Amino acid sequence: MRSFTKWGFAFGTLAFATACVVAGRDADPADWPGMASMQSVQGRSIYHECGATMIAESWAITAAHCVETARIEGGRRAIQYVPDEDGRLVRFGPITVTVGAGDLRRVAKDSVFLVKGITVHPGYTRGYPERGHDLALLNIDGRWKGPVARLDGLTGDAAAMAEPWSSLLVAGYGKSGEQAAGQEAVSRSGRHLSAPMMVLQEGDVPEVDPETCKAQIETLIETYDYGAEYDGVTVSPEWQMCAGTGYSDSCQGDSGGPLVQRGAEEPPVQVGVVSWGLGCGRAESPGVYMRVAAYADWISATTGIAPLTPP
């Protein structure tokens, strides 16, 4: 397992996409069905950690690295653990999911749920999201009655969207830049809030073909002399996809959030989950996303969500 020192360095400089959208704009949550903020609660304080999306009444999808130190206690709720100065994991607080918020300071009571179960993809290697399979499914305690995301290859079909009128977009509450400071606020109920951004952001991120992405990632690893940490890291077109050409980009705090394909008339289809990247908004440094269509069978088997029936 990689050291927590490296994790801290990665989040501060490499910007593993636990990230806000760089060069983004305020988003209308109605355009992002199922958009969620995965949070940790400690006493009267709430901390945004990662993005997520509701994909069914009781299930959300996020990145595995967002929950790799979480534990299920009492068989009924997920608790986040964090490293102390010696690298030992200590209890922090319960994990919750807040759904459909355009502004984290203004949240309806019936949109906040405790997480009672976590299923991490069996292929994920703890501490190494860049090696792939960086997906986790969250089982919430309760039922979300609002809209949910349509997943490519399962409940949606991105291929059916007519070109050239479709585009890729990412959304989240992450940092607006690598060195951007987080935001603090007080909710209407008097609770302390901490998040990279309080207002949901979105940005256009053009797709980067796998070979170009692979070459760019390898060049960056060599340029930054990260060979020891990322030896053998590559991009698999089978289960990963790349997006972002150096302007709008996902960043720290956006991990686990949605990459969607949006057409002129069709509802959006989620094609990816924010996973990792080298920097935020840097030229020729695309973000790497998990390709959800590649995991449709696993998602269906875990959640019971039935795939679309061909017409």
Score class of each variant (00 low, 15 high):
residue 2 R to L: 12
residue 4 F to Q: 09
residue 4 F to W: 15
residue 6 K to W: 15
residue 8 G to P: 06
residue 10 A to M: 11
residue 21 V to A: 00
residue 24 G to C: 00
residue 26 D to H: 08
residue 29 P to K: 05
residue 30 A to I: 10
residue 30 A to S: 13
residue 32 W to Q: 08
residue 34 G to K: 02
residue 35 M to Y: 07
residue 43 G to V: 06
residue 52 A to W: 03
residue 56 A to T: 05
residue 56 A to L: 15
residue 57 E to F: 10
residue 63 A to G: 03
residue 68 E to I: 06
residue 71 R to Q: 12
residue 72 I to D: 03
residue 78 A to W: 11
residue 79 I to L: 14
residue 82 V to N: 02
residue 85 E to Y: 12
residue 86 D to W: 07
residue 86 D to P: 01
residue 91 R to E: 15
residue 91 R to T: 11
residue 96 T to C: 03
residue 102 G to T: 02
residue 108 A to F: 06
residue 111 S to W: 07
residue 120 V to Y: 11
residue 125 T to S: 09
residue 131 R to E: 15
residue 132 G to S: 00
residue 142 G to H: 02
residue 147 P to A: 05
residue 152 D to Q: 00
residue 155 T to H: 05
residue 156 G to E: 00
residue 163 E to L: 13
residue 164 P to Y: 02
residue 175 K to T: 10
residue 181 A to H: 12
residue 184 E to P: 01
residue 185 A to S: 13
residue 188 R to C: 02
residue 193 L to A: 05
residue 193 L to D: 01
residue 198 M to D: 08
residue 199 V to T: 04
residue 203 G to R: 00
residue 203 G to I: 01
residue 205 V to N: 04
residue 206 P to F: 05
residue 209 D to Q: 11
residue 214 K to Q: 10
residue 216 Q to G: 01
residue 218 E to T: 09
residue 219 T to N: 09
residue 224 Y to A: 05
residue 231 D to S: 11
residue 240 Q to E: 14
residue 243 A to D: 04
residue 244 G to T: 08
residue 254 D to Q: 03
residue 254 D to G: 04
residue 262 R to G: 01
residue 268 P to G: 02
residue 269 V to M: 04
residue 270 Q to T: 05
residue 278 L to G: 01
residue 281 G to I: 03
residue 284 E to D: 14
residue 286 P to T: 10
residue 287 G to V: 07
residue 287 G to M: 05
residue 290 M to L: 15
residue 301 A to N: 14
residue 302 T to Q: 07
residue 302 T to E: 08
residue 304 G to H: 04
residue 305 I to T: 12
residue 305 I to F: 06
residue 305 I to D: 08
residue 307 P to R: 01
